[in-house]
């Protein structure tokens, strides 16, 4: 509990640095620090699957951010939006925070899972008790994502495919060549 609070506090500090710093490279590295601390927090929360995934995804995320954006010529960031936009933004954040605090009253106290509210018919309890017999997988998380709820994983694969397809379509150059005519042609030849 104390360790978790300390980790969360460090994550908060890293997030504030990432949002507020004027150097883009330090912002990206601070996000990396937040992600690695999150991975450690997952280990303390009894989720080693997620900890491994978060760790490697964070590495890849850093590589993509640094490789694709930081090598541009400008790395310094200047200022915030004008005063009115800033006031509206802060008001929105305060509103969302108040709504979140109101929602937390419905949450179970920390350390008590949601499935404990339905002691007889919670789906998670069924997965835990019968997962090994019904699927044969010792890792119940894998049993859930690939057997009980494989539709989720199918949807996830579709979303990932669409995201990659979108990135591909955004980065290709042939469409621009048709629209811009000759200008991009010489760019290709160069």
């Amino acid at each position: 509990m104390t360790i978790l609070a300390a980790l969360l506090f460090l994550m908060l500090v890293g997030a504030i640095i990432a949002v507020e710093t004027t150097n883009l490279l330090s912002a990206v590295i601070s996000v990396g620090a937040v992600g690695f601390l999150l991975s450690i927090a997952f280990l303390f929360l009894g989720a080693p699957d997620i900890a491994i995934t978060q760790l490697v995804v964070e590495i890849l995320c850093l590589v993509i951010l640094i490789r694709a954006t930081i090598s541009r010529d400008l790395t310094a960031v200047s200022g915030e939006r004008e005063f009115f936009g800033m006031v509206v933004g802060v008001a929105l954040v305060v509103l969302v925070a108040l709504a979140g605090i109101a929602a937390f009253e419905q949450f179970p106290p920390f350390g008590e899972p949601v499935m404990a509210r339905f002691p007889d018919d919670a789906p998670s309890a069924t997965y835990l008790a019968e997962g090994l017999d019904r699927t044969g997988a010792a890792n119940i998380v894998t049993a859930v994502i690939l057997d009980f709820r494989a539709y989720d994983t199918l949807g996830e694969a579709t979303v990932l495919f669409c995201a990659i397809l979108g990135a591909l379509a955004l980065m290709r150059r042939r469409a621009r060549r048709q629209r811009d005519g000759d200008e991009t042609e010489e760019g290709d030849a160069a």
């Binding site: 890849l60 993509i64 490789r67 699927t135 997988a137 690939l146 057997d147 694969a157 990932l160 990659i164």
Partner: peptide
Amino acid sequence: SSGVIPVCNIAIGLKVGTSLFMVLAIL
């Protein structure tokens, strides 16, 4: 053991691994 779960794992691993490599190569 556990039926089709290892096959699904291999399929997901192939899909995630190669598509993430592709996106970095493109970017």
